[in-house]
């Protein structure tokens, strides 16, 4: 790590810590969402970026996490903080199950992406139909804004929590780049047959990484449910969340530590810029689709022209070298 990079990290950390004291509340909220998106993006990046297992259905883990903690609280009276590890365990279990089924069947590439999409769809339909999720009505968490309930009156605390989650996810990704487990994942991504020939247990490693990714993403689901105190099948299991996680990672740089964070920053700026454009042009009453159109175009450009994402531009400028998968 060069002094320049270390300096940038310290500066970024300090700026993020004092940020909420300097700006109005709505900007705190935007930054909170940015860190949160970077966090769930990182959960996608662990399996989709580092291990190369592109998923179109990560919302399945997000939704399992959100529903697990919400059901435990609302129906069984659990404390939200206690429900959090439980939902991570459920997310990990679902990740493990999907991985065992799909990788045992030898699904790779596009087929794996499509089967994850189908799993998310199955969970969405189930959540819409079974009784204990209250179906399409969704579930409300009773508002009781006390820290011990994982609900905060002051948005500054939820901001710091999102920031902390983002830091933890960066540390996990950083560990991946320097551990043997991470090296095995990269070997699998680059060439599965070669990895197997080197003696790597490809199946087990892929199951492990999807379990980890699922547990992380489920943690994000609980966070989301606690922030908005409401969850329904299409928020939880809809394709929008899956695409969001994939987008920030692809745009920022798949398989890099900072890719999801950089992608999340970029998409937040695009979002605010389109909101600004839309407020200037009254004909554009609907902002959401406009920013998604820009995201879609960015995704295509990145895949076509910049396979390592915005991170590679950044790496070339700051680190003075072209990084092929950090």
């Amino acid at each position: 790590m060069t002094p320049l990079v270390r300096g940038l990290l310290v500066f970024g950390f300090a700026a993020a810590v004092i940020y909420p004291f300097l700006v109005p509340n709505y900007l705190v909220n935007i930054a909170m969402l940015m860190f949160f998106t970077a966090f769930i993006g990182q959960s996608w990046n662990i399996s989709g970026g580092f291990a190369g297992q592109t998923s179109f259905g990560h919302a399945v883990f997000f939704g399992v996490g959100a529903y697990t903690s919400t059901i435990l609280q609302v129906t069984h009276g659990w404390n939200a903080w206690l429900a959090w590890p439980a939902s991570m365990a459920m997310g990990g279990a679902v990740g493990c199950m999907i991985a065992m089924l799909s990788f045992r069947a030898g699904l790779k590439g596009s087929y794996f992406a499509l089967i994850t999409l189908a799993f998310a769809e199955v969970f969405r339909i189930l959540a819409n139909s079974v009784g204990f999720t209250r179906g399409g009505l969704g579930m409300l968490i009773k508002a009781d804004q006390r820290p011990e309930n994982f609900q905060f009156k002051d948005s500054i605390w939820i901001y710091y929590l999102a920031f902390a989650l983002c830091i933890v996810s960066l540390l996990i990704a950083w560990q991946l780049t320097r551990s043997r487990f991470g090296a095995r994942l990269v070997a699998i991504r680059e060439n599965e047959d070669a990895a197997r020939a080197l003696g790597i247990d490809v199946f087990t490693e892929k199951v492990k990484v999807l379990t980890l990714s699922g547990a992380m993403c489920a943690a994000g689901g609980t966070f989301y449910a606690q922030k908005y105190l409401y969850i329904d099948p299409s928020i939880a299991f809809g394709i929008d969340k899956s695409v969001e996680m994939l987008l920030v990672t692809m745009v920022g740089g798949a398989g890099t530590i900072f890719g999801p964070l950089i992608g999340s920053v970029a998409l937040t700026f695009i979002n605010e810029a389109t909101r600004w454009v839309a407020s200037a042009v009254p004909a554009l009453k609907n902002v959401q689709p406009l920013s998604l159109i820009v995201y879609g175009i960015m995704l295509m450009l990145i895949v076509a022209r910049l396979p390592d994402g915005l991170m590679s531009l950044f790496a070339a400028k700051v680190l003075g070298r072209k990084q092929r998968h950090a």
Binding site: V243, Y295, G296, L299, M300
Partner: peptide, 11 residues
Amino acid sequence: ILLITLGVSIV
């Protein structure tokens, strides 16, 4: 190519 066609569908 799957991601490119995903991009087309998002747009």
